[in-house]
Nucleic acid binder design. Structure first.
Lengths: 244, 244
DNA sequence: AGGAATGCCTGACTTAGATCAAGTTTTACT
DNA sequence: AGTAAAACTTGATCTAAGTCAGGCATTCCT
């Protein structure tokens, strides 16, 4: 199943400090020597084919992963085969903190498209956290951001109407892209409608209607998974439930 | 507002290794000497009066707290004054991880009743995490459990019908009590209906109806906030969406 | 290239749960 | 103790969103 994970592809491996994502996944304030240590501990550019699992629930906690290209979704599945998607992870995001509680993963992580990740195995992780304070702090920061993302999603699922959920989601993606130097006006969504609807806690049909509505209102332009935001301020305005 | 936090009450202070909660909040595998260090860093038995805030959004991250008695709710509030409750913290639980991302809290933490907490300030926290591996691991475990709780809540809000949400919640409380040596058949809920409804993403009226329904079906007996579980297996059976 | 399967959209209908309204009980305050 | 406020329940009504059904468009596979 997840056997299509291939060994490090030396050709695409790039030193961390030359990687465009280093700002995102590298803790600040590492000395040159510490950076070398971190770098030598990281397995670079592991390929996960579309629909393959990076890990599954109950797998032992082997590593923390940084998404280099592509995208990953994490989800919880029930005995009846239903699922709840917990998060989408895009380039620059770190995945794998869900296994901290028991040293085994508590959810599934699946590639939405062909994806490359860098991998920091847990032995190295513990060693580096033990000996480098800024590494430890950087990781806590990342875990904190993960918790923050989940809080935001709880607010979305608990308080918002469907249109508002989609508006908030799209605004979030736009802002994320902005902060990473990509276009905040036009982007591709990596996930199918089915997954996005599940993530946002609504039926696919409802999601589809909301896309249509936002388009009719001239707020966005939808072309399959290519989204163009025509009126960012109006879109943002639909997200009533902004945090105080 | 939160000014009614009073200084450490020496009278009620109990050494960590004599505290009945030590199993829960103390990391395993500390040497005697390490335990002494941890203990001397902890401020014990700080009282938070009912409705007072342990911390508020944007407060600087001063400490991690262990609930000793009473209960705390954490919540996100929006500009319009609506809120989403994120979690209820009962004796033995640790609160305060939400501030890891930016060194300031990202949600509010308010006492549901008069509550005592122990406090480990962040300076000590960092120092202990830096020098004691089992302390570091224990904290990661706790953060992982926090993430796991939130995943469970996302599943609840995203997939379950209202009756199932309540059933799952009650089963969870019962199991939690069981594992801590309290009664899993009979317990008081520390929060008002309003808060529980908000946490479970439904209207108060709906929550009330679901309580009545479970009572009519002879599954539980409700007396205000005192809940007696008459048919634990049937209650658990209502929680369809159990994780694979 | 052709066929099957998947993904996405739209319309018609149904329903779970929200909202509105009112009454009772419990708690809080002077 | 007495009054006001808050907490909880129940009933009647309404609506947002789910479900069902059908039809294109796109992707995947041989």
């Amino acid at each position: 199943m997840s056997s299509s994970r291939v060994p490090t592809n030396k050709k695409t491996a790039v030193a961390c400090n030359n990687c465009s994502l280093s700002e995102l996944c590298l803790p600040r304030g590492l000395t040159k020597e510490e950076l070398t240590r971190l770098e030598s501990a990281i397995d670079k550019a592991i390929k996960i084919n579309k629909k393959d699992y990076l890990y599954r629930r109950d797998d032992p906690h082997q590593a923390i992963y940084a998404v280099k290209s592509g995208s990953i979704k994490t989800s919880l599945s029930t005995l009846e085969g239903e699922e709840q998607i917990l998060g989408f992870y895009l380039p620059g995001d770190l995945v794998g903190f869900d296994a901290f509680a028991n040293n085994k993963h508590s959810c599934d992580a699946q590639a939405l498209e062909d994806t490359f990740v860098c991998e920091l195995n847990m032995d190295s992780f513990h060693e580096l956290c033990g000996s480098i304070a800024s590494m430890r702090n950087g990781m806590m920061r990342q875990v904190g951001m993960e918790i923050g993302r989940e809080h935001q999603l709880l607010l979305t699922l608990g308080q918002m109407r469907t249109e508002e959920r989609l508006a908030t989601f799209l605004t979030g993606i736009a802002e994320r892209n902005q902060s990473r130097g990509f276009s905040s006006r036009e982007f591709y969504l990596p996930m199918p409608r089915h997954d996005l609807a599940n993530y946002l806690g609504m039926a696919v049909e409802t999601l589809s209607r909301m896309f249509s509505r936002l388009q009719e209102d001239g707020i966005i332009s939808v072309n399959h998974r290519l989204i163009e935001i025509l009126a960012p301020e109006r879109l943002k305005g639909l997200g009533h439930h902004q945090c105080r």
